[in-house]
Amino acid sequence: MRNIILFIRRFFNLILFLALEAFCMVMAMHTNTLQGNDLVSSANLISGTIYKKQSDVAYYFSLKKMNDSLLAENAFLRNSMARIRSYDTLRDTAVHRKFATGDSTKHIVKYADYVYRTARVINTTTTAQDNYLTLNRGSNDGIEKNMAVISATGIVGRVEHVSAHFSSVLSILSAKQKVSAKLKDGTTGYIVWDDKQPEYLQMVDVPQQVDVKKGDTVYTAMYSLFSPDIMIGTVQKSEPVKKNAMQLLYIRSSTNFHNLQYVYVIENKMNGERKATEDSVAVKSK
């Protein structure tokens, strides 16, 4: 017993050092899984409040740019409204997409039901391996985990941590998440990020025979978390991958992550049910 105490007293610094490092490692490992702890994230009250104060100050410097982007978005919305209004029969299907099952037209099934909420970005990073944004809305305003986040110009990310007044969003600039995407002609693939440049995303799993030109637009696919047909970016360069006869597309992201101000958080009311179904399949196949 005496020896143990002597040993601890002699190597106290080393033991403390190793213990602290082990604690840090465990914490880092836990957060790298998707179910990570909410304890140390920028959604907590102290860092959230400080970021909000800063954002309140920095807000005024970009008012002009923001005005322009809001105007552009209004024009876009007016245009799409006008297009929808002209087809009277489709009036209700703009948000509530419905389809009829084959045998009976009485069964009309909604498989997607979207609610858009606005939020202000109070912090954003672009240099890390996994980049996060902090929003000034939390569970009090109806934000939940795993909701999709888009901006006026393109996709942004997915909500990962939520506190009462803040939420932190894992942006598309992260090695941790893939988004399914499609090209103009309907070819689907995945969007990934190779953590090199915040302006460029990569699209993988596109067959080589598909003809892709510089400047082609890439949209979100039907089965992603995001609602379909949201712009992701434009193709900048394509490179054949020899080992699997696919091609790698470099995509210039249409969202400017450096000066994001406002985003929309999309709630898909059907998502819970869909996720539960998909998870039950995943559990069985294990």
Binding site: E21, M25, M27, H30, T125
Partner: peptide
Amino acid sequence: LLSGFAVGISIDAFMDTAGINAF
């Protein structure tokens, strides 16, 4: 060591990199 941990963990809380700065 303890103050290093405190500094690192406070930076981590702001940068969403739990544990890495502290390490």
